[in-house]
Design a protein around this nucleic acid. Structure first.
Length: 264
DNA sequence: CTCTATGTTTAATT
DNA sequence: GAATTAAACATAGA
């Protein structure tokens, strides 16, 4: 469930469920997801605490507690949060947080089949959080800032854009789509992008993030597969110029691009 | 059976 | 050092 729009929707749900509530139980037996951490430390840090805020930066969520402690949640590839009443645990449930607020109680569950996600309790911010680049929603995507960051490396431009310390929250779908909208070859060395290209890229990234977020707003399901133009469409015609969409592995990630209109 | 996957980290190689 | 590449993680689905 990963890219920024999904994480933002998840943040809003957690905020609705948790802020102002007091944690009555917190359990996880999953040492893979609690990394670093332990079942004992997880419960100890959370039980009895009230939740003061649920924040997001890039793909990370930070739950703030009334004693200054924090719970960090990264959804990895297949993580999501649900409110499950008192239902029994499903097969992929990795953690459970029960809360009470003004006499009513909720049971919030972290579900993650592949367990690439993480839950970390800490008294201070994690390096993973503090090292994140600008957040596209909170900070906006400043083309000048992005240009200066992209100018520092000759890695493929798409790889650089997906670097969470360059810009926080952009994943493979958003990056693939944005390079197509901006008509830029995702394999081009990052430092070779012109100022005009970075400007188009910044606008395309912003538009794609807001488009996907908009599709999820006004909906309250867990369907997060949105219509895309070329992601996963190698071999079919480019929706813009009808050339056959190609595929390449960039920074270890499968990427689709149009060889005709994503030139130079 | 094989191949792929919205993410990140780590080891190996150049 | 930097940069690139492959493998690894764990599971489900086509």
């Amino acid at each position: 469930m990963p890219e920024l729009p999904d994480v933002e929707v998840t943040r809003r749900r957690l905020e609705r469920w948790l802020v102002g509530a007091t944690i009555t139980a917190a359990r996880s037996a999953d040492r893979r997801v609690l990394r670093p951490g332990s079942p004992r430390a997880f419960g100890h840090a959370l039980v009895g605490r009230a939740v003061s805020a649920v924040e997001r930066r890039g793909k990370w969520i930070r739950v703030r507690l009334d004693d200054g402690g924090r719970l960090f949640s990264h959804l990895g590839m297949t993580g999501w949060w649900i409110e499950a009443g008192g239902a029994p645990a499903g097969a992929a449930e990795r953690a459970r947080i029960d809360v009470t607020r003004r006499g009513s109680s909720l049971s919030v569950r972290y579900v993650d089949p592949r367990r690439f996600g993480r839950l970390v309790v800490a008294a201070r911010d994690l390096p993973d959080w503090t090292s994140l680049g600008p957040d596209p929603l909170a900070d906006g995507i400043d083309a000048s800032v992005l240009a200066s960051r992209l100018a520092r490396t000759r890695r493929a431009a798409k790889d650089a854009v997906m670097d969470q310390t360059v810009l926080a929250g952009v994943g493979n779908i958003i990056a693939t789509e944005a390079f197509w909208y901006a008509r830029i070859d995702p394999r081009a060395p990052s430092a070779d992008l012109s100022r005009a290209q970075v400007g188009r890229l910044a606008r395309a990234l912003d538009a794609e993030i807001r488009r996907e977020l908009g599709l999820r707003e006004g909906r309250d399901d867990d369907d997060w597969t949105d219509p895309v133009e070329i992601y996963g469409r190698a071999g079919s015609p480019c929706p813009r110029c009808r050339a056959v969409v190609r595929q390449a592995v960039i920074g270890g990630r499968t990427s689709a691009f149009c060889p005709r209109c994503q030139g130079r």
